[in-house]
Design a binder for these strands. Structure first.
Lengths: 206, 206, 206, 206
DNA sequence: GATGAATGAGTATTCATTCAT
DNA sequence: AATGAATGAATACTCATTCAT
């Protein structure tokens, strides 16, 4: 399990941050277009309009590019989730879950190819979950939601429930965007995902 | 989207089949030990006690080794599922689902490392689902199960339900074997998976 | 101190040996022409009329090419020395030494550029002397010579004397071929080398 | 044969001289620690507590660092030799030679690793001897010594003798410090070097 | 003068694939 | 059919050098 690669230098200057951003954008595009095998650092640099040397100034190696992209993705998803859960009026658990599913699906539909690559080719770059700050935040946020609705949910072990929900959410959202047969209407798939999660949490099946 | 690699020649002779089997075994071992990056055809050949040339006699290229392994895995899982669903007395839907989950978890615990690699590094080798005979069979078998219990299940669209069930089943089983934090008791995780599926099918939440 | 690199596979077939020889020849030529910095494996392969892959079939890395060349050189020098010392009638110590110096100078004048590079740029590739079989043989042969003439030589410690003689011989022969100002007649330089060695051994100064 | 790299600007200011000195010191340390391959200008700059740009202010390229170090070494050795030969009472030739050998050995024992690198990896940076001012001085000083004792020495051609003496002295001193098997007592090695030189010069072997 | 971020040419090494035996 | 030596395109990464600040 490789440790989470860190940028060689933490960019403080605005210039550096723009550089890093450009590199990550280029990585995302190349990755989406050509997959891991087709991605190489020279091409990424070229696409970013930057020299290879600069890429290596901020990323110690190729894989760290992917890892950073993962982290960025997780951070974005955290923002999505946090926004959805935070700025809403009093809602039922189902409403919260439905909103999350909706927002996540929307977020993933933006660059489905990138997410395909990120999710399917490289989850193995995932650092052990606890090492990824963004993943951690997401987990805590969801855990909090379950806590708030503790009376309405069936699973006793809320840690386990959090894990199950996240795992299911993650895989079904990705599957919906990437794999879902075109015969299924997007809205139907979306509803089904909500049903899966709520079925588990409401637990009336018992 | 690469097309599904096919063996160059379909081995009919027993000798050939043994060869293919040896090659796949070696591929599995190497893959499990060293991941995709560390896997190369020369090494696979060596481990299989065979020359590289022979590998290329039966597999047109490297990726076809992985694909074949996937297919083998799917076929094995089909057998597991089919056995579980077939040789049982009249049972409730829950009993069937529970039995499937149990059997699949058991099957995946045999070579978790290989499954980790297969599932996490290479789902992208998954052919479009309809092209994979084994996946197809699995799908039909589960579809059949839902059909048999059509009165007890909430989702109207049984095709969609099949897809959702398989997707959820697949990801949670793999997650359970590969990712699950050690703090969760295996039996608790197993029960949770059943709850997820049954919650969805029984329509608990509605 | 890196251990002495070994060919990846020991070539037994005549074909392989020719390959190895071609590679070493090419290495020698490139090295002589362009020095270490200018030498690269791709160029060596090209010059040898062989693919890079083949170079790496027999040599694990670039430096092993140099090491092998060193070893080959040492072996050749051993042959020169052994021939000179062996096939001669009864001779004085001075005659033996003079013959050695003469033969070694002749041998080094064949490819002075190569020897320059070998001696001056890469003595650091020299394995610890005892690890190099050829160097070892040379040492034993000279030691034997001193033993045979023990009554005529001044230095008591013959091990030390052997070391001093070889060290001096090596550096002066190379210097003569590589560095010697053109104003000095080769024969004069040759005689001087003999005087140095004989002066030491005969104990002239005492 | 690369021409002797010259500092871009001859530093006259005390500040500049300190800078140059710091850079050379850093170069020496890095070279001694990591060898040529491991040495790079950025690292040297860092170790010197200076920016790369400053290094290139005074040294046109990497190799000029090494050359300068060589020159510095030669200059130091000249001082050693000159001191030894100058401030002594009337002495025999042997006494002079012995004193030189002793002083040079002492000087080389200070930083043997650096000298190893300097002598063994990079003698090829040696400019043609006449171009190096320090080498030139050394040569003249030794030549002078031989002149003063012309009646006691056997070799007729004193230019050649000077060359032989310096060549032998240099290689044996370095060998003594770097290569000499530990079984040989330093004092015995030292004496042997003197014997070699005196044997040649006294020339009683004829 | 000094800085150090940016450059990008250069290169060792790997490994999928072929094909003569 | 089987072999495995040979191939060579492909690529991650380094580091000497520059130049805008």
């Amino acid at each position: 399990m490789p440790s989470l690669p860190q940028p060689r230098r933490t960019p403080r200057q605005a210039r550096s941050q723009a550089l890093v951003e450009a590199i990550l954008e280029a990585t995302a595009r190349v990755l989406a277009e050509r997959g891991y095998a087709g991605t190489n650092t020279n091409l990424v640099a070229e696409r970013a309009g930057v020299s290879v040397g600069s890429v290596y100034q901020y990323f110690p190696n190729k894989d760290s590019l992917i890892t950073a992209l993962h982290e960025r993705h997780a951070a974005q998803m955290y923002t999505v989730i946090d926004t959805v859960l935070a700025n809403s009026q009093p809602r039922t658990l189902r409403a919260h879950i439905a909103a999350m599913v909706h927002a996540l699906l929307a977020a993933h539909r933006v660059e489905p190819e990138l997410h395909r690559v990120l999710e399917k080719e490289f989850p193995f770059f995932d650092a052990p979950k606890d090492q990824s700050p963004a993943d951690n935040s997401i987990q805590q946020r969801v855990r909090q939601l379950l806590e708030q609705h503790r009376d309405e949910i069936a699973p006793r072990n809320r840690d386990l429930a959090t894990w199950v929900v996240l795992q299911t959410l993650d895989s079904l959202v990705h599957a919906a965007v990437i794999d879902a047969p075109s015969q299924f209407a997007p809205s139907a798939v979306e509803r089904a995902i909500v049903e899966v999660l709520m079925g588990y949490l409401a637990g009336a099946a018992r």
